[in-house]
């Protein structure tokens, strides 16, 4: 039985764009996000993000489900936040396309896990 998967997100302070915690820092791409599978390291990462007030605004953790091996945010709000406005597919991170962007665009409602996480690095 695995724990709830989490991703750490925030907005970049100066630019406002959505960013995700990666292995080494922060990225505008959801595909780069580090997946936390234990609550302790997720909470510790959130604490240190809260201290990074010079570069970040409003850090928080989001729930992620493993859908066909890919990490998909559980709530549609977080999927839209990771993609950009659904009415402008050319705007925001979704413009880049790719497997993960596609998976997020295809997910409906409250995403539920459908197995183990495949491709993406985990903490």
């Amino acid at each position: 039985m695995s724990e709830q998967l989490k991703v750490l997100t925030a907005n970049d302070l100066a630019g406002g764009q959505v960013v995700f915690r990666t292995e080494t820092g922060w990225s505008d791409r959801y595909a780069d996000a580090l997946i936390y599978d234990d609550a302790l390291s997720a909470d510790a990462a959130l604490e240190s993000a809260r201290a990074a007030t010079l570069t970040l605004a409003d850090p928080y953790l989001i729930d992620v489900a493993a859908v066909e091996g890919l990490p998909v945010p559980t709530s549609y709000r977080e999927r839209i936040r990771a993609l950009g406005p659904t009415i402008h597919p050319d705007m925001g991170p979704q413009a880049e396309g790719g497997v993960l962007v596609h998976a997020l665009q295809q997910a409906r409602g409250a995403a539920r896990s459908s197995g183990r996480l495949g491709l993406i690095r985990r903490k």
């Binding site: 907005n11 630019g15 007030t53 605004a57 409003d58 839209i80 925001g92």
Partner: peptide
């Protein structure tokens, strides 16, 4: 530059019409 915290700054930014939204 870090002199103001987000808590201190947020009301000031709102008074000038600047909101933090979903993407920006």
């Amino acid at each position: 530059s870090g002199e103001l915290s987000e808590e201190q700054f947020k009301p000031l930014r709102l008074m000038n019409g600047l909101y933090l939204q979903l993407h920006s």
